[in-house]
Simulated scan of single mutants.
Amino acid sequence: MTAVTQMKCACDSCLCIVDTSKALEKDGHYYCSEACASGHASGEGCGHKGCGCHGS
């Protein structure tokens, strides 16, 4: 069995795929950026190309 090393960012509106060894982990979920991990508290997106994620 191989370990999962890549998964979708835990932010619902985010399209990013994160490497679990480099991702931001918060409460057992993996995020691509501090913006996603904080639930977009400031309303900013992750800033990654092609992704328009934001807070709900």
Rank of each mutant, 00 (worst) to 15 (best):
T2Y: 11
T2A: 14
T2L: 06
T2S: 08
T2N: 14
T2P: 11
A3G: 07
A3K: 13
A3D: 15
A3M: 10
A3H: 08
V4H: 10
V4M: 08
V4P: 08
V4L: 14
V4K: 14
V4C: 10
T5Y: 09
T5G: 11
T5S: 09
Q6K: 09
Q6I: 04
Q6N: 07
Q6S: 07
Q6W: 05
Q6G: 06
M7D: 06
M7S: 09
K8N: 10
K8Y: 09
K8T: 11
K8W: 02
K8R: 14
C9V: 05
C9P: 09
C9I: 02
A10R: 11
A10G: 12
A10S: 14
A10N: 12
A10F: 03
A10Y: 00
D12V: 07
D12F: 07
C14L: 08
C14V: 04
C14I: 02
C14M: 06
C14A: 03
L15W: 00
L15F: 02
L15C: 02
L15R: 09
L15N: 07
L15M: 06
L15H: 03
C16K: 11
C16E: 05
I17M: 14
I17L: 12
I17S: 11
I17D: 13
I17H: 04
V18K: 00
V18F: 00
V18Y: 00
D19Q: 12
D19N: 15
D19V: 09
T20I: 15
T20S: 04
T20K: 13
T20D: 04
T20W: 02
T20N: 02
T20R: 12
T20M: 12
S21P: 04
S21V: 02
S21R: 14
K22H: 07
K22E: 07
A23Y: 02
A23D: 01
A23M: 07
L24A: 07
L24H: 11
L24N: 06
L24Y: 09
L24T: 13
E25S: 14
E25T: 13
K26Q: 12
K26V: 13
K26N: 15
D27I: 00
D27Q: 03
D27W: 01
D27N: 11
D27Y: 08
G28H: 11
H29L: 14
H29S: 15
H29M: 15
H29I: 02
H29R: 14
Y30A: 08
Y30F: 15
Y31G: 07
Y31C: 06
Y31E: 06
C32T: 01
C32F: 00
C32K: 00
C32D: 04
C32V: 05
C32A: 03
S33N: 09
S33T: 13
S33A: 14
S33I: 06
S33P: 08
E34I: 06
E34D: 10
E34K: 13
E34F: 02
E34S: 10
A35F: 06
A35Y: 09
A35R: 06
A35Q: 15
C36W: 00
C36M: 10
C36F: 10
C36G: 07
A37G: 03
A37L: 01
S38D: 12
S38M: 10
S38H: 05
G39H: 06
G39T: 06
G39Y: 04
G39F: 01
G39S: 10
G39I: 08
